[in-house]
Design a protein around this nucleic acid. Structure first.
Length: 420
RNA sequence: GUGGGUGUAGCUCAGUCGGUAGAGCACCAGGUUGUGGCCCUGGGGGUCGAGGGUUCAAGCCCCUUCACUCACCCCA
């Protein structure tokens, strides 16, 4: 049989309930914080990602699904959302109406990596982006919003890591110092890190090879190279987080893998996902809007790994599942045709009803009603029809009584609404 | 892209020395002629991941391949 594509997955109905719950929680919280939803396309020109994420990153270099689109050049399945949101902000001159804009978006991203736990080729992200605010207050507020979000989903066991990458000037000074350090330490580094030392020295910082970690223990820290302004900004973020009683770890080795980040970067980590420990990450990208052809507006955002979140939350889909309000058990063809009309009437009126259309025995219908978790069963056989009645059984109390079938849909609606 | 582990019923998994394909759960039916959960009985369901090879004979041995999974890399 034809199977789904490697690294892709189906999200089946019983799990979808959990996804919907998480999505609802995010929408409601983010909207309370003043974020508006923006919906962006899944395909973009390849160039958008090359220019924003960076030509030398792994994402752009080897993980993107890129293919020719007729004669119009290359298009790419988006590997992340920020670039598209920035493009939309610029393309529709949203800054002209108000430079300050707050957006969120939820949807699939695509990266052609080898799949493993918490990593898929099509994966879902919940993104939030803020444009036009320089103040460190917004940095801290985003982190506060994230932490609140996780706590609403009963995700504990998380740790907030923060760092500052400084502005371009601090970063240049730091890179120079780091390069000098790396060339001195070169022989202690793994092969990957030797390569990184040339192409993207910052990446050596978060190498997981023990010998590299050891060699890097004495490496210069970006935090020592922050200019006054960047330093003040970072202190501002830390102060607000402390005021909000949000525990955090300063992690000068936290280097985001996308080139556009500046100043504050952060990551929410969990211990319960194996090696894929980041369930959310983000940071400032104060120069990206200009890089992509827009006005010089600061910006900051984050992405939450939806799939990873689903894996670590203690919430169970079973607790969120929808159960039928009433199960209709019809016996015989005559009953079936009458009950079928009631069945449709219930559904139209927003009562979740279930009817077994296969004409099975009462026993098997009761069994199914029980399995579906229906609170009531309405039993209608030839005997009841002759008497102009039907039997309404409460599955929890096992009490049952005959009720008249005139206006039965209305009667049962009333009965059910009294319960709520 | 590189390495390790695993592929047998819808699910979780046994399967001895190469000799007729198994269990539990789930599903369906009956026990109860029209009443769920517990119990009992029965039933359906398999290209043993796929392809090739060795053999009288392969779920088991050999080769190839695919998928899943964990880790590296990287990231959400």
């Amino acid at each position: 049989m034809i199977q789904l594509i490697r690294g892709f997955k189906d999200i089946l109905p019983e799990e979808v309930e959990l996804w919907q719950h998480i999505e609802k929680t995010a929408r409601s919280l983010f909207e309370d914080f003043g974020f508006k939803e923006i919906r962006i396309p899944i395909l973009e020109h390849a160039e958008l990602f090359a220019r924003s994420i960076g030509e030398d990153t792994d994402i752009v270099e080897k993980e993107m699904y890129t293919f020719p689109d007729g004669k119009r050049g290359l298009i790419t399945l988006r590997p992340e959302a920020t670039a598209s949101v920035v493009r939309a902000y610029i393309q529709h001159s949203l800054y002209a109406k108000d430079p300050i804009q707050k957006f969120y978006t939820i949807g699939p991203m695509f990266r052609r990596e080898r799949p493993q736990k918490g990593r898929y080729r099509q994966f879902y992200q919940i993104n939030a982006e803020v444009f036009g605010i320089d103040s460190p207050l917004i940095d801290a507020q985003l982190i506060f919003m994230l932490v609140t979000f996780f706590s609403r989903l009963s995700v504990t066991e998380i740790e907030t890591h923060i760092n500052s990458l400084g502005c371009h000037k601090c970063r240049r000074d730091f890179k120079d110092a780091l390069s000098i350090f790396l060339s001195a330490a070169s022989e202690k580094l793994c092969a990957d890190c030797k390569r990184r030392s040339q192409r993207n020295p910052l990446r050596v910082l978060d190498c997981k090879v023990p010998s590299c970690k050891e060699a890097m223990a004495e490496a210069p820290s970006i935090l020592d190279y922050l200019c006054d302004e960047c330093s003040i900004h970072f202190n501002g973020v830390k102060n607000v987080l402390e005021k909000f009683n949000i525990p955090f770890v300063i992690d000068s080795l936290l280097v985001r893998g996308l080139d556009y980040y500046t100043r504050t970067t952060f990551e929410i980590q969990t211990s319960s996902l194996g090696t894929q420990n980041a369930i959310a990450g983000g940071g400032r990208y104060d120069t990206l809007v200009k890089t992509l052809g827009g006005p010089a507006q600061p910006a900051i955002g984050f992405a939450i790994g939806f799939d990873r979140l689903v894996e670590i939350t203690d919430l169970k889909s079973a607790d969120l599942g929808q159960k039928p309000d009433i199960f209709l058990a019809a016996l015989g063809e005559k009953s079936m045709s009458i009950v079928f009309e009631w069945f449709c009437a219930f559904c139209v009126d927003g009562i979740k009803a279930e009817l077994d259309l296969n004409g099975r025995s009462l026993k098997s219908q009761m069994k199914r009603a029980d399995r579906l978790g229906a609170e009531y069963v309405l039993i209608v056989g030839e005997k009841e029809l002759e008497e102009g009645s039907a039997i309404l059984r409460n599955m929890n109390t096992k009490e049952q009584a005959a009720i008249p079938i005139d206006d039965i849909v209305e009667r049962i609606k009333k009965e059910l609404s009294q319960k709520d």
